[in-house]
Design a protein around this nucleic acid. Structure first.
Lengths: 340, 340
DNA sequence: CTGAAAGCGCTTACAG
DNA sequence: CTGAAAGCGCTTACAG
């Protein structure tokens, strides 16, 4: 059932069918009415590929994330897709599994599909891939890939605001000995969280002890192990900030296993503010990354750089992180080591 | 940069370009070689819309889920997408937010895109929508929507095997008083979990007390409330099965707040086996729904019903559920009510 | 092994 | 307000 067929049955040209389909105002109301009815009766479904080929726009956006199994992403995807749907735009979704070489492949595939724009929400980076995308003229936007000065459309996530809030909160509770579970240095976002921690400690005039900075791989297990390491130190910290929530959950588990009560004997703050923070015991305080805001910015930027066909870079929005307080922090125990 | 342009530069026809692109064997090796090189130099990206229009197949599959924020779905999406990628197929992803009227809209949009098939992984049902899809001739497969006898391609999830394992496990530990947190009756999957619970109880010859069956809305908060209701009963159960993990987490939280130790004083088993089960305290035992298996079946069935253009229904695979034991169950306290 | 040509199903500038 | 016709960028049956 194509337009030809409909046109024959309605005794009009395909041009008129097309006009009715697209709600053109220059169709005589009675014709419009009649064609609409026939369209419905025939259960006509237009062919988007033909339309895309003709018009050059697909009403499709691409969304690339690192890892759909990471609970950080669903809300971001949700928000992006909801905004797209409002505008009658579909979303092709793909993920790289943190492999930067897959990024180029993903971009290419999306560009072949004539997507109108691509949001790249990955931890890993691949400049060759970005250059390729730029050459193709397909609008794209990076989230938290780069600092403020990059040639590409970009959204900047300010990790400092949230890290400072977290450290200030701990300091105000009386903590002087604060550890950090760091992430791999290969990702921009984990690097900037590390820097944010150091800077915040400086701001509140607390000394960072190198042996209290332990590196994990972002998974829960490595947080568990990092916590065990921290607990073996003498002296040991009375609180910690973790690069992400998953590792903080591991730390929570380790504390529990060692009979250390959180928050009474040890305070923990995560990073990400995953929905699961409400489900663990105690509920985990965490620095929120405003994923929905990020998604909305990305969507708007793609829309804008698509419509205006403009080549120049759009202004880079900055989104702030902020501490979401739950129940995993308290004043430090009276005299750390001798407790119990 | 289209094929015309490449053809001119390579001094061959577009037919030859197309053959090289598609790896046809009937091209003279030297020509193949030369054209390939030029293709690379020119950074040519084929136009998939044109190809789809011409060939009638899009190398695109649609995937519809109810709710991406539900941690049940990411693994399913992951598996489906991974299999698609292996075959050079992209996935358009969309979700209904549990609104059955959105289902038809989603299907229509995917069909307009000429997707080669659609996997419908939703809780809600909409028969009008399925009929519409069937009329369109676009292959689609439902997961756990229907029983074994339906005109549509379908994957059957056997909740009984897992529920029985769970109840048998509790019975073997010595539990005689087992409650159930039910889900809404509007979803097929929650209905069949309820039936599976009743049947399992019958099998182990335990009586179900109506006042120990409490209904929730699948969210954590309602599990919390359900648990509080159960704890107020006299006599009260010593264990419970929950229709899903999220509500079981709520129950866990409620127990904790009321100073009831899980599993020493109360055993809890969930349904879904979400990755988060490992992150709560104590780790939650849960009936696993083999989502990756479901996704794989769905993918294979779409591939098959696409290639053979066959109209008849494919055989319905059955996937079994099974208990995944963690740490949230133990023998009941010696004398339930008088404990402590 | 290669090319000329038709045609997939739309939209739109143009003419009336 | 409506239609005839061109053309978007591919693939493929056909001819050579």
């Amino acid at each position: 059932m194509n337009m030809q067929e409909v046109a024959r049955r309605a005794k009009v040209s395909t041009a008129t069918i097309s006009r009715v389909l697209n709600g053109s105002s220059k169709v005589k109301p009675s014709t419009f009415e009649r064609v609409s009815r026939i369209l419905n009766e025939l259960n006509y479904v237009p062919n988007t590929s033909a339309r895309t080929l003709r018009v050059g726009k697909s009403q499709l956006l691409g969304l690339i994330v690192s890892d759909i199994n990471n609970p950080f992403f669903p809300e971001l995807i949700d928000d992006f897709e909801a905004r797209a749907r409002e505008q009658g735009i579909d979303v092709v979704f793909t993920h790289t599994n943190y492999q930067s070489d897959r990024l180029e492949h993903c971009l290419r595939r999306l560009i072949e599909r004539n997507v109108d724009g691509i949001a790249v929400c990955t931890s890993e980076t691949n400049h060759a891939a970005f250059e390729f995308a730029a050459r193709s003229r397909c609008p794209f936007v990076l989230t938290n890939q780069e600092g403020l000065r990059t040639p590409y459309n970009n959204i900047y996530v300010d990790h400092k605001s949230g890290a400072l809030e977290a450290i200030q909160h701990l300091a105000k509770l009386g903590h002087r000995s604060i550890g950090f579970i760091a992430g791999p240095t290969s990702f921009g976002s984990t690097r900037s969280r590390r820097e944010a921690f150091f800077e915040a400690m400086k701001t509140v005039r607390l000394k960072v002890r190198d042996e209290w900075v332990v590196e994990g791989d972002l998974h829960m297990e490595s947080g568990h192990e990092a916590m065990e390491q921290l607990l073996r130190k003498t002296p040991r910290p009375t609180a910690l900030l973790s690069t992400n929530d998953l590792m903080a959950f591991g730390a929570l588990r380790a504390a529990h296993e060692h009979g250390i009560a959180v928050p009474e004997e040890f305070s923990i703050i995560g990073f990400d503010n995953l929905p699961i923070c409400d489900m663990v015991t105690p509920p985990l305080s965490s620095v929120d990354i405003p994923r929905r805001q990020i998604a909305s910015h990305a969507f708007r930027m793609l829309l804008k750089s698509g419509e205006s066909r403009l080549e120049r870079k759009l202004p880079t929005p900055t989104v702030k992180t902020a501490l979401k307080l739950r129940a995993s922090t308290a004043p430090p125990p009276k005299s750390g080591k001798h407790q119990r």
